[in-house]
Design a binder for these strands. Structure first.
Lengths: 228, 228
DNA sequence: ACCTGAACACCGTTCAAGT
DNA sequence: ACCTGAACACCGTTCAAGT
């Protein structure tokens, strides 16, 4: 409609003299691009698949060029993890009448994000405290406090929800990893549980309703910490 | 034999009768010894500190000798983790009248074992399903079932306890790692929480009573899943 | 049955240098 | 400001060989 779309004024004024094919072949290196490709690589090859050399290869640059944008490999891991954990706190959460629904929603989103990138679960234990995590904790704190959880119980309540989600996600992700060969794994599980009669009877390891179990356990916990 | 100098000078001339000190200096290689030293090394140097070459060094053997007893480095990690997670199910647990106490005791023991070897937390997400874990799940299953948890709720109840403990342990271990420099970390935490008013007010990150919080959250959860 | 060194195909990162 | 290759000090593991 408008003759001049806003995107034109966007910082892509490179039309000056730049040869076209150059722009299409390889965009310039940047922190963002490095992280994006790192996540791709991790998704495709798993945690051992991420190599500075391979990363540079995919980016079409020399290995050492990465080090201008990034401190070291640890740094790449940190950034990749952080990009998975992103949290934009919805501002209206503060007023919603359904505090319980808000909590469940935020935690389910958290879990889903991590499960989309199973390697993030094995990275987390080494670097749990980033801004995105803090932001989620803040949301929990605000919501629970508003719901009437006693101040003396607040911290324990927050951590318990937190722990529950982390544990559920890590356990679930580790199943994903070990079930690459579904059939063989199923076989192995059945075999294993023979030695453990009670969990065999309840089919603990064969039940595939992870989402349902997650929700149910979360309800137990919320029941337990709801103010009476 | 003294007539042949060529092989005599190369390696230590093992005399026909074993010198006593030889036996006392290095016991023969074995799976058990390898695992024990691997755990020592991990305790001392962390996860990146474990190297096949270093391990062999500490054992007084050539690197490749390890591979007779062990498949590869992954295998060493598996064995080391397993040795930390050991669980000898006390047989009398089946009859104790205090089911809740039994559960708490087992889970606290689990957590304590892992926290004694913080690297185990970062290893766990990659290989969650060993016999020791199954044995603990079996114990939970038996105890909760005896306590009267409905069959339809049993699996969710087991997993929720499980998840809680795993999450609590991983989170706590990651704090240990990042607080190597206590003072600086404390500073950083205070600084960080400025942006998160609610958790700053409740001093969520500065509260050091981890054991108490663990116990309290566990009580919430047990309250929630206890049969009414 | 158990142990070994040499060799291979990789790593992450420092450095001095190039634009 | 950004990128580079050569070089260093490591890795895990295969292999052929030693006892």
């Amino acid at each position: 409609m408008a003759a001049k779309p806003r995107s034109a004024s966007k910082r892509s004024q490179r039309t000056k003299l730049q040869p076209i094919q150059e722009a299409s072949s390889e965009p310039p290196l940047s922190r963002e691009r490095i992280v994006a490709i790192a996540v791709e690589l991790l998704d495709a090859q798993g945690i051992d698949g991420l190599t500075m050399r391979r990363l540079a290869d995919r980016l079409g640059s020399g290995v050492m060029s990465l080090y201008w944008h990034v401190d070291n490999k640890e740094d790449v891991f940190d950034l990749a993890l952080d990009s998975v954990l992103e949290h934009r706190g919805s501002p209206e959460t503060g007023e919603s009448p359904d505090w319980r629904g808000d909590v469940v929603h935020m935690l389910e989103d958290w879990r889903a994000r991590m499960l989309r990138h199973p390697w993030s679960a094995s990275l987390l234990p080494r670097r749990a405290l980033g801004p995105n995590i803090l932001s989620r904790l803040e949301m929990l704190s605000k919501t629970l406090s508003r719901a009437g959880v006693a101040d003396a119980n607040l911290n324990a309540a927050i951590w318990s929800l937190w722990n529950y989600v982390m544990g559920a996600t890590l356990t679930r992700a580790s199943f994903d990893l070990s079930e690459e060969d579904r059939a063989a794994a199923q076989q192995r599980l059945t075999h294993l549980s023979e030695h453990y009669p009670t969990i065999e009877r309840s089919r603990l390891l064969l039940d595939n309703d992870w989402d349902g179990a997650f929700r149910k356990g979360l309800d137990f916990l919320l029941d337990g910490l709801s103010p009476r």
